[in-house]
Design a protein around this nucleic acid. Structure first.
Length: 360
DNA sequence: TAGGCGTGGTC
DNA sequence: TGACCAAGCCT
C-alpha cells in the first residue's frame, strides 16, 4: 500500500510527466463522446498501434451515432474485420440504436446510463466520461492494474484483488483534472511501467513505488498459474459447383466469431480421416453430398484458449440444396466476391490460397 | 465467479 | 517458439 500522504505528490508528478511525455493519440484531439466511445471499445484488449487505422476508417465510414445505428450489421462487421472480439462490433451497433431510440441520439452523461449500454463496463464508462466530459470517474484497465500492483506491491494477482485496485484508482484520480489523470496513468503503464523491463529511472512515481523500492518490479504484478491449451484438428471444405462458385456460410450471431463468414467444416473425431470428417461435417451442417478432392492448404491459428489446425481441401458439389442447419446463412459466391464478406483471420490464408491457385 | 471471446506483438 | 500480454465485457 502507498501512503495517503503521498497522493498529492503522485498526482502532481504524474500530470507534470504527462505534460512532457504524454502520447499524441487521435482520440485525444476530440471531445466527441461518440468518437471517444468508439476508441475505448476498440482499445479493449487491443494495442494502440493496431487500433489507429481502424479508428480512422471507422469515423469516415460511420461518422455519427445515427449513421452507425442505421447501418447494416454486415457492413459493421466488415469494418471490424481483423480486430477480433467481434461481439464488440455487434454491441456497438446495438448500443448505437439504443442511444438513438432511448437517448434521442445524444450520448448519455451518467455512469449508470453509460454502463447500461451493451459492451460498456465500468472501465470503458469511466474512460468515456472522463475523456469526453472531464468527469472524475476512475478506470481499471490492464495498464492501471499493473501500475497500481507495483505502486502498492500488491501481494496477490490483480484478478484476486479487483475491489482493492478500484479503491486505489478512485483514491488517486485527481478530482481537478480527471481527464488528464486517467490518460496519464494509462500512458505511464504503456510506456514506462511496462510488463517487462519497466523504465523505472524515468518514472515519476518511483519515489513512492513499493515494487521499485524493494526491487520487485520484475516479479510484480503476480501472475496466475496458466493451464495448457487444447489443440483441435479441423477439416475444412472449399466446395465448388459446376458454375465456378464457392460455398460459404455465415456463423450464428453469438459466440466464437459470431456473424462472420467462413468455409464450412468441423472437428476431426478420433480415428477419423480428414476426408471422412469433411464429408460428414458437410452432410450434417449443410445437408449436401460432396466429393472431397485435393488438399489446398493447412492453416495453424492460435486463439486465446485453444489452437486449431485447419486442413483445407477442395471439394465438388454432388447433390442437394445447401441448407443453413448449423449456421445463420449459406451462399454460393464468385471467388472475386469473397472480399465483400467479413472472414476471420484463419480464413484469410484460405482465400489467398484460392485466389492464387490455378484450379479456379 | 470463472471461463468464453481474436489478433498481433514481443522475447 | 511457445508463452505472455494488450485501454475488458458478458454470462
Amino acid at each position: 500500500m502507498f501512503p495517503a500522504a503521498a497522493i498529492p505528490e503522485l498526482r502532481r508528478s504524474l500530470l507534470a510527466w504527462y505534460g512532457q511525455q504524454g502520447r499524441d493519440l487521435p482520440w485525444r484531439q476530440t471531445r466527441d463522446p461518440y468518437a471517444i466511445w468508439i476508441s475505448e471499445v476498440m482499445l479493449q484488449q487491443t494495442q494502440v498501434q493496431t487500433v489507429i487505422p481502424y479508428y480512422q476508417r471507422w469515423l469516415e465510414r460511420f461518422p455519427t451515432v445515427e449513421v452507425l445505428a442505421i447501418a447494416d450489421l454486415n457492413a459493421v462487421l466488415k469494418a471490424w474485420e481483423g480486430l477480433g472480439y467481434y461481439s464488440r462490433a455487434r454491441n456497438l451497433h446495438r448500443a448505437a440504436q439504443q442511444i438513438v431510440t432511448e437517448h434521442q441520439g445524444r450520448f448519455p452523461e451518467s455512469a449508470t446510463a453509460v454502463e447500461a449500454l451493451p459492451g460498456i463496463g465500468r472501465t470503458t464508462a469511466g474512460g468515456i466520461l472522463s475523456a469526453a466530459f472531464n468527469q472524475p470517474q476512475a478506470i481499471l484497465d490492464g495498464n492501471v492494474k499493473r501500475v497500481l500492483a507495483r505502486l502498492g506491491a500488491l501481494p496477490l494477482p490483480p484478478a484476486r484483488a479487483i475491489a482493492q485496485l478500484w479503491q486505489w484508482s478512485e483514491a488517486l484520480i485527481d478530482p481537478d483534472q480527471p481527464r488528464d489523470f486517467n490518460q496519464a496513468i494509462m500512458d505511464l503503464g504503456a510506456t514506462i511501467c511496462t510488463p517487462r523491463k519497466p523504465v523505472c529511472d524515468r518514472c515519476p512515481w518511483s519515489f513512492a513505488c513499493a515494487a521499485y523500492n524493494t526491487q520487485m518490479t520484475e516479479q510484480l504484478p503476480l501472475r496466475e498459474a496458466s493451464s495448457p491449451i487444447p489443440h483441435k484438428q479441423i477439416g475444412v471444405a472449399v466446395i465448388w459447383n459446376d458454375r465456378g462458385q464457392i460455398l460459404i456460410d455465415q456463423r450464428k450471431p453469438e459466440g466464437l466469431l459470431g456473424g462472420l463468414w467462413e468455409f464450412p467444416g468441423g472437428k476431426i473425431e478420433a480415428g477419423e480421416s480428414i476426408e471422412d470428417c469433411i464429408r460428414r461435417e458437410i452432410q450434417e451442417e449443410l445437408g449436401i453430398a460432396i466429393a472431397v478432392g485435393d488438399h489446398l492448404i493447412s492453416v495453424d491459428h492460435t486463439y486465446t484458449h485453444f489452437r486449431v489446425t485447419l486442413h483445407v481441401h477442395y471439394c465438388q458439389h454432388l447433390e442437394g440444396e445447401p441448407q443453413a442447419i448449423e449456421c445463420a446463412e449459406v451462399r454460393w459466391v464468385e471467388p472475386t466476391e469473397l472480399s465483400e464478406f467479413a472472414f476471420p483471420k484463419a480464413n484469410q490464408q484460405i482465400i489467398t490460397a484460392i485466389l492464387k491457385s490455378k484450379v479456379q
